[in-house]
């Protein structure tokens, strides 16, 4: 059984389980599923700096910070007890492309060739981690949500603005992965 769980889970198992988070949070306490808001609550609680956008009763939203702390603990538990010893499987086309940028280590879900402390001090690593992170934080708040708040919660409640946001997420991702990332990874 445990061997079975250690294998990567197929989409048709993981997707419905992720979808069940929506009713779980609603039924447990009327909470709308969303993750990027946690970043705003962290700003509001630690560095509000008198900015109106961070002046609200963040203590009411502590549940959201507890939820993301749970995600972090979930990551620890799966790495400790449920990790898959085999290399990450990827599409051979992707592997061929990444090999041209010197990315060939598939021992970890977070590639050890580009996302490490040593790589952080290279231009390539800096763009991937620091610029990328900034865009994630800025973009999700500007859009009013991320994959969970817009794509999953928003679409589940049939909100068309969330569909617009989701389409834009995908357009941005396609532009980056296909047009810009090859240049960045070649640095």
């Amino acid at each position: 059984m445990i061997e079975f769980i250690k294998q990567p889970w197929p989409w048709y198992v993981a997707g419905p389980l992720i979808g069940l988070t929506v009713p779980a949070l609603l039924i447990l306490g009327n909470k709308s599923f969303g993750i990027s808001s946690s970043l705003r609550h962290i700003c509001a609680s630690c560095i509000p700096a008198g900015i109106p956008f961070f002046k609200y009763d963040w203590k009411k939203e502590i549940w959201n910070l507890v939820f993301v702390a749970g995600i972090l603990i979930g990551g620890i538990l799966s790495a400790q007890f449920l990790s898959n010893p085999d290399p990450v499987q990827v599409n051979p086309k992707l592997a061929a492309e990444l090999a041209t940028y010197g990315i060939s280590d598939y021992s970890n879900l977070v590639p050890k060739d580009v996302l490490t402390w040593e790589a952080l001090f290279t231009l390539r690593g800096f763009i991937l981690m620091v610029v990328g992170g900034f865009l994630v934080g800025f973009g999700t708040r500007y859009a009013g949500g991320c994959t969970s708040g817009h794509a999953i919660m928003g679409l589940s409640t049939l909100q068309w603005p969330s569909l617009v946001a989701t389409i834009c997420f995908m357009i941005g991702g396609f532009i980056m992965a296909n047009l810009l990332l090859p240049l960045i990874l070649s640095l």
Binding site: I35, S36, S38, L39, V68, I71, V110, L115, I127, L128, M129, V131, G132, G133, F134, L135, V136, G137, F138, G139, T140, R141, Y142, A143, G144, C146, T147, S148, H150, V164, A165, T166, I167, C168, F169, M170, I171, G172, G173, F174, I175, M176, A177, L180, L181, I184
Partner: peptide, 18 residues
């Protein structure tokens, strides 16, 4: 605008906030 910017970041970091 925010959606596009987040999309760019998503493909760079390989991760959304969760």
């Amino acid at each position: 605008y925010g959606g596009l910017l987040f999309g760019l970041g998503w493909a760079l970091t390989g991760a959304c906030p969760g």
